[in-house]
Design a protein around this nucleic acid. Structure first.
Lengths: 153, 153
DNA sequence: CTTGACTCTGTAGTCGAGTATAGAGTTTAT
DNA sequence: ATAAACTCTATACTCGACTACAGAGTCAAG
């Protein structure tokens, strides 16, 4: 096996094999998540197959809740020779706390919603009001507060 | 009490009394959530105090998880004379389902994260890897899937 | 040799719910 | 009379992770 055994891939093939869109790959490069690959004479990107592992890394980190910014920081640290373990741990701990808070809020919110719904089921809809569900709620003020309840997605 | 008893409010006062920013009020108007108020000769908005109730309605609906788009639909329906009850119920039912799914995914995700963290605690950090936490995870593939795990916010 | 598939760069748009700014005019207080 | 505080419109920016497009160049097959 020669050392130069690796097949070079054009961006479309990387996209197909990784499931990441072409535009996203170029975007990752711009964001510092992928280093810039070699080019053909005509300027086409030529990737080593190793890039696929890097992409898996990115996907995994993403699945663990890291933002692209954080991932790119991890990669920078790695390049600087530091093992970014403590950082990873910190991020994950923070992530866990946020998660707990968010879950708690959602559960509370859920129970409020169902309460509203079933209360409304009993009462039936009276006059021209918006179902009492909103206009004359039996829930006091505030609900679960901060109306940051609904993650945008 | 005369019929024209209502005090007219300028936007700053509405903002102060409702806790909604001036820019947001104008934005709500553009979005059809608030009807356009009267104006002074010089063009300043003059609101009836009734606008405060409308804002409370909006805030409550928002707290219940309605998007501004949905809220504006509810208001349109109300203006058309229809009671949008069935719609409200539908939206809430959908919201509940989404919520359940999201909570479930988050809980699963949470347990995966803690598993990662504690596994890593035992192993300690070996070679130059990114803590094994990401690069050589003991969790198989996919984690909680779809990496739509992290609500952006 | 031409058609179609691929790739390049650079810019702009998406979603949601606003916030920020510029530049101009108005009202209120001193 | 003048300064401070308020309001107006219109436009652009924010965050995150992309996606879409225009317009041009390149490569492989028939």
């Amino acid at each position: 096996m020669a050392l130069t055994d690796e097949k070079q891939l054009k961006i479309g093939e990387v996209s197909r094999r990784s499931g990441v869109g072409i535009e996203a790959l170029r975007f990752y490069e711009k964001s510092g998540l992928l280093e810039r690959p070699g080019r053909t004479y005509s300027g086409y990107r030529l990737y080593d197959e190793a890039v696929l592992e890097r992409i898996v890394f990115i996907k995994r980190a993403q699945a663990l809740g890291f933002t692209l910014d954080e991932i790119s920081q991890l990669i920078q640290h790695k390049h600087a020779g530091e093992s970014p373990c403590e950082e990873v741990r910190e991020i994950i701990r923070t992530r866990l706390q946020e998660l707990d808070e968010r879950i708690e809020r959602m559960v509370k919110y859920r129970s409020e919603l169902t309460a509203e719904l079933s209360a409304w089921d009993k009462i039936g809809h009276a006059d021209g009001h918006v179902c009492g569900l909103i206009e004359k709620s039996h829930i006091e003020n505030g609900l679960s507060g901060e109306n940051q309840l609904r993650p945008r997605s």
